[in-house]
Amino acid sequence: MKLGILIKQGPFTHQASDTAYLFTVAALAKGHEIYRVFFYNDGVYNSNKLSEPQTDDRDLVSLWSKLAADHNIDLVVCVAAALRRGIKDEILAEGFRISGLGQLVEAGIQADRTIVFGD
C-alpha cells in the first residue's frame, strides 16, 4: 500500500517525528511504499542539518536522511513554513527538498492512506 506521512512537529520537543520515523521503518519492513513524507508547521526543523544532538541521543535529522537514501523516500519540506522559520536550502540535510504545500495535497490524493503526526 502507498502511504503518505505528515509531520507537524520538530525533533526533540515532541515525540511526533520519532513516532513517524519508527512507523515509517515498520511500514517499509512490511513492504509498503512511502509515497512521501511532508514536513509542515515546526516539522520543517527535522530538515536542519545544523542540528547536533548529544552523542548518546538519537539524531533524527540524520535518521530521516539515511532512511530517504536507503529507500528512496521523498522528504518534502513546506516552503512557506520553512522560510518563516529560517529553513533554507543552505542548511537542508541530505535527502530533503523544499517545495510547496501542493505536495502535501498531491500526496493525499496519490497515497492510499495519509497519517498525521504532530502535537
Binding site: 507537524k8 508547521n41 498531491e106
Partner: peptide, 19 residues
Amino acid sequence: TIYALECLEVALITAAFDQ
C-alpha cells in the same frame, strides 16, 4: 499557536486542486 493560520494556508491551497 500557529496551527490555525497554517491550517488555513493548507485549506486554501487544497482548493486549487479540485478536490
